[in-house]
Design a protein around this nucleic acid. Structure first.
Lengths: 235, 235
DNA sequence: CAGGCGAAGATTGTATAAAGTTTCGCCTGT
DNA sequence: ACAGGCGAAACTTTATACAATCTTCGCCTG
């Protein structure tokens, strides 16, 4: 009691201004409102959030570390454009990590968490029903993040946050446009396995879920940015 | 040919000033010259590297993301003090990721890489022979990073860099002082397996190596910082 | 008329200064 | 003599100003 050295337990990352910027930009990228290659001017963002360039810069640098923004020296910040090689690495990492995460989630899950999962599935279904693609893609990523939170492993959670953010960009860039909706609802199956605490089933369903998502991608090297432009104009 | 938009491929991260600061501080922490809890004043570091606080701040924020520095609001930056729970998570993650990394390294290894590995082992042996604990601990971490570089997976490499840095702090904090040297040379065995491209053996040796390192730790919760203080003063 | 050179504009990188917060010494009152 | 509070110093945080760099667009030349 002598040392009340740290009156506030922590400022996790939600209340300060730089986090507001970071989360705002992240949400915009994850919802596919900001497309890969988009210029993220410091003044521009600063004016939107009423912050000086110092804070914007801090936020952008954090996003660089998360892999969804790239900074080119003396040219500025841009929404990242993952290559097909990046995409393969990201999904391989997810196939390695996420089965382990659901495994732990089966151990750590509580009634409160199960309720949270149930509500999340309802949100996802509702977004899909009303055809809100932006909400759908955001919620789809948040589901995986939620499972990682349940697992209670902060390291895995941190890694997965990064992987999910990159996945969102990858799906936007490389998804085959002929695939129906978002496939059947694998998330519900995963939740069912977690509820039953059936680790083997949970791992298996998570793995097949990820495999199926990756199978819907067309990972052919576009050689470079110019290549893409040629494609678009040629069509 | 029309658009020579990007003349320079990239500025990886080695030449600019902020990277010099980051790598300098990282090396100091990894070599156990900076102990957990040490205050990292901005002016102090800035003067050492002849840089202004702006650059120091950027470097420190990157180190926060790597998990070896923690910033407390309005109090400054400190060398991180991983908890036993952190330690368990870090090593669990390493046991999950590193076997996969060596697996890929067996595929991607080339004569040039093998030579690099051989030279590294020689360096490690030499440091151990002359009793240079600081070089030993640094090289030990660098070995794992080298294997990840060989694997060619940039995502795994990024994750592992973070895990290795944290591991260094963890070993410093929680290692049992009664353990002999650094154990027998597991690294040589791993290299031998890579050379033979024997994936199963490589995975197995890496896993047992990590398990053994963790087994040398004493991960008892000190409850909090105050608790540690009480222990120290009570002794 | 095509192509390249050059200056103006805009944007980022860096440093410095102002503002707010914490910490620690010191002083006062009991 | 000691507890409690006031105040100054040091530090971090944020904002602003300056310097360097790149992009763009006009103009000149071949």
């Amino acid at each position: 009691m002598a040392a009340k050295t740290r009156p506030k337990p922590d400022t996790p990352d939600a209340s300060d201004r730089v986090s507001r910027i970071r989360e705002g930009v992240t949400a915009a990228i994850l919802e596919h409102r900001l497309l890969p290659g988009t210029k993220l001017g410091e003044d521009e963002i600063g004016e939107i959030y009423g912050a000086s360039r110092t804070l914007v810069r801090t936020a952008l640098q954090q996003l660089v570390h998360e892999g969804i923004v790239s900074i080119e020296k003396n040219r500025g910040a841009f929404v990242a454009r993952p290559t097909p090689a990046d995409a393969r690495e990201v999904f391989e990492a997810r196939r390695l990590i996420e089965p382990t995460i659901v495994d732990h989630a089966c151990d750590a899950v509580s009634p409160a968490w199960l309720d949270r999962l149930r509500r999340h599935l309802a949100e996802e279904r509702e977004a899909e029903l009303r055809g809100d693609a932006r909400a759908s893609v955001r919620l789809s990523g948040e589901f995986h993040r939620l499972v990682a939170e349940i697992s209670g492993h902060s390291i895995y959670l941190g890694f997965l946050k990064e992987l999910i953010a990159r996945s969102s960009l990858i799906i936007l860039l490389y998804r085959r446009h002929d695939t129906p909706a978002c496939g059947t609802d694998h998330h519900a199956g995963i939740v069912a396995a977690i509820r039953k605490r059936d680790k083997a089933a949970a791992r298996e369903q998570m793995l097949s879920h990820l495999t199926e998502i990756e199978a819907e991608l067309f990972l052919k090297d576009p050689a470079a940015d110019e290549m893409r432009l040629a494609d678009v104009l040629g069509a």
